[in-house]
Nucleic acid binder design. Structure first.
Length: 510
RNA sequence: CGGGGUGUAGCUCAGCCUGGUAGAGCGCCAGCUUUGGGAGCUGGAUGUCGCGAGUUCGAAUCCCGCCGCCCCGACCA
C-alpha cells in the first residue's frame, strides 16, 4: 500500500497535485492563481535561496531591491518587451476605496494620473536606474541581483509550475561590449546548470533557445531543460543576452576610454519557485516526495516510539541527544538539520507524514534501540524492498559517523537515477519529420511517456521557422534548445532536408 | 479566452435522472483497550450541498446566470 492514493502511472497530473498536498508543500489561496507556500515547501525554497545566493555573490554580484510597482509608461519602452508582457499584466489604478451603495469600490475620485503595473519582471525599471548609475566605462561591469516576487496574469495556473504570483531571483548586469555580456550570460547559465545538478539533483541540458522561444526583447536566450518523469521538459532556468535593446530604449550609455558615448550591453537571468515543481516531478514517487538531502528543510527526522509511559522520558532524552550530536555535523556546506518529532501523535502516522514529505532519513527509535545504543532508520530514496518497508539498524556511534555519508550518497543516488532516465529517453536516431510523427503520433494515449528527441536542423528563421513551429505544434511539440555540446558534423535537417548546422532537442513541455 | 469535466463535512465521494427534514468511508475530538510499526472498540462534533436569481407548498436535486478547480488548446518561468 502506497502513501498516495494515485500513482504516477495512473494519472501523472493528479499524482503531482497529490504530492503538493500530501507532502504539505503548498495549497491554493483565496487569491486566484496564487498559492500559499507552506513551511515544508518554503523551507525548500529557503535552501534554494541561500545556496544560490551564495553562488551568485561568489561570482561577483551584489543584491539590491526594486519596487513592486512600475510606472505603466516604463513597460512601453521596449517594443518586443511590451508585446510579450502586455497581455498578462496586473494594473494598479486607484489609491483609495470608497463605499458606494454599501459596496467597497475603488474611489472614482482617487484614480491615479499614471497607473502602475505590478512587475512581471524588472528590466524596465532597472534599466531606468542603470541609465543614471552608469556614466563611465569605469562603472562597468555592473552586476546586480534581486530576490523578489513577480506577477503575470496567467490564463492557466499550476502549483509551483505556473502561478500568477511567484518568487524568483532576477539578475541584471551591464557590460562594455557583447563579448563581456555574453561571458556573463554563459556564467549565469553555468551557475544554474551546476546548481540544478549538484544541489537539486536534477540533471539538465543547457542550450540556446531558438529565435521563436526567446525572451521578449532578448538577442539570445539560453535555458536549462530538465526531464520530468512523464517525459515532458521543464524549463528550469533562463539566461538572456539583451544586446543593446534595453540600452537603446532606456539610454544606458557610458563614456568609453576615447570619450565617446557608447551603448552598454545588458543581460538578465532568473530561476523561480518553479524549481520546486521540478524537484517534485524529478524525485517524487508513489509514496510522495523524495526531497534531495541538500535542500531538505529537515534532513534527518527522529520519531521516538513514545508509548505514553514513564520510560518515554528516557527515550526522548536519547533522541534529543542523538539530534544534538547530528546537528553538530556539517553536510553540503552547512550544519546538518536534524529534528526530533515529539508531536503527540501516533508514531506510525508521523512516520508516514515524513515519508510523504520526503525527509531523507527517518529514524524510528524505540526503547530497545535506546537500551542497546542503536538507531533504526529508513532511507527515503530506497524505502521499500518489494512492497515492504526496508529498515536498517546501526550502532548509534556508527550512525552518527556515517550520517553525512548516507545523505551525500542519497543525493548522488537521486541524481544518478534521474540522469539515467534522462539519457535513456533522448532518442537521437530520427532523420525525418515522418520519424517524429511516427514516434509522437497524434492519437497517442494522453500522458504516455515519449521522452525527448535530439535531431539535426538547418536553423531556419522568420516565416520558415514559424512553419516548423506549426508542424511541431500539431504533435504538441516544441523546440527546447540547441544543447551547448554539439557534434563536429551534422546530417540533414529533419524539417527541410537541407544540410543541417545544429542539433536541437524537441519535446513536449510544461 | 475556446473545448471537456467537476463543485455536497478537513479529505475521497454517494445522493441529483424520478423534488419531500443531509449521507458513507477516512480524518478529527473523548474514553477504554493495544503498543517495534499506517491498531481495536464505544461514544461524539463538524455542512448557508460553490454563489446568485427563478419554478414550486417544498430545491443538493429542475431552469437561468455567474464563479472556482482539474484536463486539453492558445500563452508563458
Amino acid at each position: 500500500m502506497h502513501a498516495l492514493k494515485v500513482t504516477r502511472a495512473e494519472d501523472f497530473p493528479e499524482w503531482y497535485q497529490a504530492v503538493v498536498r500530501e507532502a504539505d508543500l503548498a495549497e491554493l489561496s483565496p487569491t486566484r492563481g496564487s498559492m500559499i507556500i507552506k513551511p515544508w515547501g518554503y523551507g525548500i525554497w529557503e535552501r534554494i535561496q541561500s545556496e544560490l545566493d551564495r553562488r551568485i555573490k561568489e561570482t561577483g554580484h551584489e543584491n539590491y531591491y526594486f519596487p513592486l510597482l512600475i510606472p505603466l509608461s516604463f513597460i512601453a519602452k521596449e517594443a518586443d518587451h511590451v508585446e510579450g508582457f502586455a497581455k498578462e499584466m496586473a494594473v494598479v489604478t486607484h489609491h483609495r476605496l470608497k463605499a458606494i451603495d454599501g459596496v467597497l469600490k475603488p474611489d472614482p475620485e482617487a484614480e491615479l494620473a499614471e497607473p502602475f503595473i505590478i512587475r512581471p519582471t524588472s528590466e524596465t525599471i532597472i534599466g531606468d536606474a542603470f541609465s543614471r548609475w552608469i556614466k563611465s566605462y569605469r562603472d562597468l561591469p555592473l552586476k546586480l541581483n534581486q530576490w523578489a516576487n513577480v506577477m503575470r496574469w496567467e490564463m492557466r495556473t499550476r502549483m509551483f509550475l505556473r502561478t500568477a504570483e511567484f518568487l524568483w531571483q532576477e539578475g541584471h548586469t551591464a557590460h562594455v561590449d557583447e563579448a563581456d555580456a555574453m561571458d556573463e550570460t554563459m556564467l549565469a547559465l553555468e551557475i544554474y546548470r551546476s546548481f540544478a545538478e549538484d544541489f537539486l539533483a536534477i540533471p539538465v541540458v543547457a542550450g540556446e533557445k531558438p529565435e521563436n522561444e526567446r525572451f521578449p526583447g532578448a538577442v539570445r536566450t539560453y535555458s536549462i531543460e530538465a526531464m520530468m518523469q512523464d517525459g515532458k521538459a521543464l524549463q528550469a532556468g533562463t539566461s538572456h543576452y539583451l544586446g543593446t535593446h534595453f540600452a537603446e530604449a532606456q539610454n544606458i550609455r557610458y563614456q568609453d576610454k576615447d570619450g565617446a558615448q557608447t551603448l552598454a550591453h545588458t543581460t538578465s537571468w532568473g530561476v523561480s519557485t518553479r524549481l520546486i515543481g521540478g524537484v517534485i516531478m524529478t524525485h517524487g514517487d508513489d509514496d510522495g516526495l523524495r526531497t534531495p538531502p541538500a535542500v531538505a528543510p529537515r534532513q534527518i527526522v527522529i520519531v521516538p516510539m513514545l508509548r505514553g509511559k514513564p520510560e518515554d522520558a528516557d527515550l526522548k532524552a536519547y533522541c534529543a541527544a542523538l539530534a544534538k550530536e547530528l546537528g553538530a555535523l556539517t553536510v553540503f556546506g552547512s550544519g546538518l538539520r536534524a529534528f526530533v518529532d515529539v508531536k503527540d501523535a501516533k508514531p506510525a502516522d508521523k512516520r508516514w507524514d515524513w515519508v510523504r514529505r520526503g525527509a531523507p532519513l527517518i529514524c524510528e527509535i524505540g526503547p530497545r534501540d535506546a537500551a542497546n545504543g542503536q538507531v533504526t532508520f529508513i532511507k527515503r530514496n530506497a524505502l521499500r524492498e518489494g512492497e515492504k518497508i526496508k529498515s536498517h539498524t546501526l550502532a548509534r556511534a556508527d550512525f552518527v559517523a556515517q550520517a553525512r555519508q548516507l545523505l551525500e550518497a542519497m543525493q548522488a543516488e537521486l541524481f544518478a537515477e534521474a540522469k539515467t532516465r534522462l539519457e535513456a529517453n533522448i532518442r537521437a536516431d530520427f532523420e525525418t519529420f515522418a520519424d517524429l510523427e511516427r514516434h509522437y503520433g497524434t492519437e497517442d494515449k494522453e500522458g504516455e511517456f515519449k521522452g525527448w528527441v535530439r535531431v539535426c536542423w538547418s536553423r531556419p528563421t522568420g516565416a520558415a521557422l514559424e512553419e516548423v513551429g506549426e508542424r511541431l505544434k500539431a504533435l504538441k511539440l516544441t523546440i527546447r534548445n540547441a544543447p551547448l555540446a554539439q557534434p563536429a558534423a551534422f546530417g540533414k535537417c529533419v524539417f527541410t532536408g537541407a544540410p543541417a548546422v545544429e542539433e536541437i532537442l524537441i519535446a513536449r513541455a510544461y
